[in-house]
Design a protein around this nucleic acid. Structure first.
Lengths: 242, 242
DNA sequence: GCCCATACACTTGCATGCAAGAACTCCCTA
DNA sequence: TAGGGAGTTCTTGCATGCAAGTGTATGGGC
């Protein structure tokens, strides 16, 4: 377990160049564990998507294009939209809706604050809102599919909120809009409006995409995002095909 | 690798009771491999969804409810629908469309035949159609998400076609309808009708669900499906909550 | 007779040693 | 000088031995 945690941390902090082969022996002395747990950790991280297997055995850090990130976020929207629709179709309880409402009330209080503690609490509440939304869909399969997506460092529901920490002017508005999306989601689920709930969840994810595109224009901000070194940034003047 | 293949095969053929602890030492002599590759295989199968980790370490064969299976198939529809929409939005090439058409023409020829060889060819062509559909979405993230789903034994695009092999009267009609769905999918993608393409793919997956529900009424047929022993069948007179 | 404590056995997790395979380099030959 | 072959080294994959933790069973004490 130690091997997994330390290795993931080192990968996300950019200590390995994407694409280069990660030989086991150097990693053994770097992480202070034996090859057996290391191999397990490498296999685990391949499943998470952070590593990719090489042809002759061995692994390399995976590199993500901006298109990959866009797709991952959009797919999260698609799956969370399905979660919202499932919640509607499966008669969510009032208790679940109240829980969502309470979390979102907590978010509302924080939207207009600017200190770092508030930011941390915001991220925590936001994660809990999204986790609860998936939970009320009552679908282990859906939970599994979403878990496979948000294991990617930039695909989670709060990944792009490095912006508000950075106090960019756009970030405040985005928090307001995100809160409004949450309100609409609760409302549409309560009224059994499945199609609206699904679209809203998709649009909500697109907000993260907007967030990300702002971050990509402020690369100093992007650097704070864990796993930023895994993103293939196009060299200036070399447009990346969408 | 040997360990992984043999273990998966034995699980799918029902040689382990769902829920019971799979100790390593008995598996070692059963599979004829050492504990090291065995542990890797166990971890791999946990990721595939066939095993679940137990609290104090160790694994058990996972049991799937009918609701799980329904959800997995519906999620495949959601993701393949997204693939179809991506294909539209990303300007699929004529070459890709031709390839889909060619595969589907091959399917049309087989729909009205009844021999076993034709069944095998049908399954092969069907798999290729779905694989190509995902490919033309040009999204590695989407491919990954779908791969995580269809690793489940009953969620793949051809899993429920044990029916037509069994020559049930309903199965012939279902093949005709499935072929028509494929035609509609190609058409809508060609005409850049993203919403229609997405809905059609979803409806197409629902056909597999219909298929499965027929199979659940003919349990002798269900038995032919690999991994059937992992399905929690409700005891008669004990309705399963949907 | 019942409950608690201790000891034993079984389980998983880790480390190390070994073998097989592939790639790279160096040398020899054409 | 260039190409091929052989040797060496580095790589991953597998097996086994060992230790630590947990659960259970048995015995002793209250």
């Amino acid at each position: 377990m130690r091997a997994l945690l330390r290795l993931r941390e080192q990968i996300l902090s950019g200590e390995f160049a994407p694409g280069e082969r990660m030989s086991e022996l150097p990693l053994v002395e770097r992480l202070g564990v034996s090859r057996t747990p290391l191999r397990l950790a490498l296999a685990e991280l391949e499943h998470e998507g952070l590593l990719r297997g090489l042809v002759g055995g061995g692994y390399a850090v995976r590199e993500f294009t901006q298109a990959d990130i866009r797709d991952a976020i959009e797919l999260r929207g698609v799956l969370e939209g399905t979660a919202a629709r499932f919640a509607v179709e499966r008669r969510v309880t009032r208790r679940d809706l109240r829980a969502l409402g309470t979390i979102n009330d907590g978010i509302e209080e924080l939207v207009h604050r600017a200190d770092y503690d508030s930011f941390e609490r915001y991220v925590d509440l936001n994660e809990r809102f999204h986790a609860r939304l998936v939970k009320i869909a009552r679908s282990p399969m859906l939970e599994r599919a979403l878990a496979g997506l948000v294991s990617l460092p930039f695909a989670g529901p709060s990944a792009a909120f490095v912006l508000s920490e950075a106090e960019l002017p756009e970030s405040r508005e985005i928090l307001v809009i995100a809160h409004r999306h949450h309100v609409g989601l609760i409302e549409s689920i309560e009224r059994r409006e499945g199609a609206r709930a699904e679209s809203l969840a998709r649009e909500h994810a697109h907000l993260a995409l907007t967030n990300l595109e702002i971050a990509l224009r402020h690369r100093d901000v992007l650097k704070r995002m864990p796993g930023a070194s895994l993103i293939a940034l196009p060299r200036d003047g070399e447009p990346q095909h969408a």
